[in-house]
Amino acid sequence: MSFTKLSVSVLALAAVSATAAAARDQISIVGSSTVFPYTQAVSEQFANNTGSPSPIVESTGTGGGMRIFCNGIGEGFPDITGASRAMKASEWAVCEENGVTDVTEALIGFDGLSLAVSRANDFDWDLSLSEIYLALAAQVPVEGEWVDNPYSKWSEIDSRLPDTDIVVLGPPPTSGTRDAFVELAMHVGCEELEYVQEGGFDGDWVEENCSRMRTDGPFVEAGENDNLIVQRLDSDPNALGIFGYSFLYENLDNLKGVNINGTEPTIDTIADKSYPVSRPLYFYVKNAHRGVIAGLNEFVEEYMSEDALAPGGYLSERGLVPLNNERRAELQERVMNGVAMEAKTE
């Protein structure tokens, strides 16, 4: 693959050239903690192949990464941000305000939002989405009333579950993993409740009333570093954790996945969509920085390589579920040619 000449505004290129070429010789990357291990793997391969300095990769969370990425162009701003959801219209508006308008979006593959527990926990975990909602939501139905969540033990939700305290470690509100978990697990789990179905509540009601995680103790915000959740699960066999599948995949010696609706999180179940909580992963690159920031073109080329993205590639070995051949080829052509994304309107 080769890069075609990118159409970059003269002012944008001048702004970058005046600062970045002289002041920064390392690629700067921010964003999702879920995408972080994949980008880190590409960074290591890029450095090994080229002898260039390894890019600086910071795990800031998807929302935090978007804010930093969209603040402007030039050496003081990152070249790429990773995301565990698509860019929002509100984030694109900030990009536009700051002149960050020539951006390429890359959907690199898929990931499962895994619940996991220590292998020292001998319970055969299998939760429904409605049980997950009842354990973690700020408000739930009790005896026909919508009230603050009273449940402190799993057995209070269903007698087949352990008589242990509910302790679930998960991401903060700035995380794309949190956004995806709320949308794919909490909203769907809420919709499955008899109270919601019999009440005839629509999606707007669910979004307004079922999006808040509880703040009274059972749900613990563990920051943007998913490795800290892994460490906590090692030390507390009764705690559950929420993170991207790659972190479960890399720690299967110590952790086991929690089945959801009878389905175990695996590469195969995420790929065939039988695992109910899966989402796409992205990165975004500033085309104004290509050809100006040293090594950025080559780094993007490595990220788009078959060695990285194809089935059996080094990213799938770390838990990424690859795109099919047709979608992957379209992605590679579009990203390598620097095709700008369309404005986000919703």
Rank of each mutant, 00 (worst) to 15 (best):
I267G: 02
G144D: 03
E143H: 01
V42N: 09
A340K: 07
Q139N: 14
I157H: 02
S128H: 02
S130E: 13
G51H: 03
D202W: 00
E224R: 07
V300A: 03
K256Q: 02
I108M: 07
L11T: 14
V300Q: 08
D124F: 14
Q40W: 05
G312K: 00
S7R: 12
G199Y: 06
V277C: 00
P37I: 00
L127M: 11
L315F: 11
I293A: 00
T174E: 13
G76W: 07
L248S: 10
D226G: 08
D102G: 03
E346M: 14
P53I: 14
A14M: 11
F110R: 12
K344M: 14
T34M: 08
F201R: 03
F46K: 10
C210F: 11
A12F: 00
I80Q: 02
D253K: 15
Y303A: 13
S278K: 01
R85C: 10
L248T: 04
L281F: 00
L323D: 02
I68C: 10
A222E: 06
I27T: 08
P53K: 11
A86P: 05
N324M: 11
G74Q: 02
C70S: 09
L331C: 12
E346N: 03
A22I: 12
S128F: 07
Q45S: 08
F201W: 08
D253P: 06
A329C: 07
M304D: 10
L6R: 14
S118V: 00
N324P: 01
F123N: 13
F46N: 11
I242V: 05
E91H: 08
V182E: 12
V230N: 00
E198S: 12
N209G: 06
D165F: 03
D158P: 02
N121Q: 15
E58S: 09
A310F: 02
E58M: 06
S33G: 15
L11A: 09
N225Y: 03
L107N: 15
V57A: 04
E301Q: 14
T81M: 10
N225E: 14
C70L: 06
N98I: 15
F77W: 07
D122C: 02
D204A: 09
V103A: 04
G65H: 06
G63M: 08
L184G: 08
N325Y: 00
Y275Q: 04
I229S: 12
Q26M: 01
S211W: 02
P173I: 07
D148L: 06
V30W: 06
R119D: 10
L252V: 11
E330M: 01
H187Q: 09
A135V: 01
N259K: 15
G338H: 03
G170Q: 01
D25C: 01
F247C: 07
W154Y: 03
N261G: 10
S159E: 05
D158W: 13
K5H: 05
I166E: 12
S114I: 04
R119G: 00
A308Y: 11
V292M: 04
L6H: 14
T215P: 00
P55D: 09
Q40Y: 07
G31S: 05
A343L: 06
T164N: 11
I108L: 06
A308H: 08
D126T: 06
F3Q: 02
E298Y: 10
Q197F: 01
A20H: 07
I56G: 10
V292E: 04
G144Y: 12
L233T: 04
G291L: 10
D124W: 03
T269M: 06
